[in-house]
Amino acid sequence: MDVSFVVNIINNLVSGAMKIGIPLAVLFMIGAGIMLAMSGGNINTERMAKTAIRNCAIGVIIILAAKGLISMIQTAL
C-alpha cells in the first residue's frame, strides 16, 4: 500500500465527515440556541443548552483541524 493511497482514503473520509458533520452541528447549535432561549431561567436547561453548543463547536473544530492536517500531509507528499 502506498502512503498517498492511505492519505486519499482518509481525505475522503474527512470530506464526508465535513459534508455531514458541519450541517448537523449547525442544526444542533440552532436547536440548543432555541433550548437556551426557551429555558425560562431553568438553570439545568441552560446548562444543557450551553454544553450542547460547546460540544458542537468542539466537533466542528476537530473536523476542520483534521481537514487541515490532511491537506498539509497531501502537500508534503
Rank of each mutant, 00 (worst) to 15 (best):
S39R: 14
M48L: 06
N55S: 01
I34P: 00
N44F: 11
M29I: 11
K67H: 09
G21N: 03
K50T: 04
S15L: 13
A66C: 11
G21V: 04
M29F: 10
I58C: 02
I30P: 12
T45Y: 10
V26D: 13
A37R: 05
M29G: 09
I62P: 08
A76G: 02
S39V: 13
M35S: 14
I34V: 09
G41W: 04
V14N: 14
G31P: 09
I30H: 02
V60G: 10
K19D: 12
N12R: 06
M29Y: 07
M35R: 14
R54W: 00
N8V: 11
T45G: 12
M18L: 13
I62N: 07
A25W: 04
N42G: 06
E46S: 05
L36I: 05
N44R: 12
I73E: 02
M38A: 12
V60P: 11
G21P: 05
V14D: 12
N44Y: 10
C56V: 00
I10Y: 15
A76P: 01
I73D: 04
A17D: 09
I62T: 10
M35T: 13
V7N: 08
M72Q: 03
G59Y: 02
K67I: 04
S39L: 12
I30K: 01
I20H: 07
I9A: 15
G41C: 07
L27G: 14
Q74H: 05
A57K: 00
I9Y: 15
G16L: 10
I58L: 05
T75K: 02
N42Y: 06
S4M: 08
V14Q: 13
A25T: 06
M18R: 12
A57F: 02
G68D: 02
A52S: 05
I63G: 11
I34R: 03
N42K: 06
M35Y: 10
V60A: 09
A32N: 09
G16M: 05
I22C: 11
V7A: 14
T45R: 15
I20G: 08
F5D: 13
G68L: 02
V6G: 13
M72G: 05
G31K: 01
V26Q: 14
V14I: 15
I61Q: 04
L36D: 01
L69N: 01
I30Q: 06
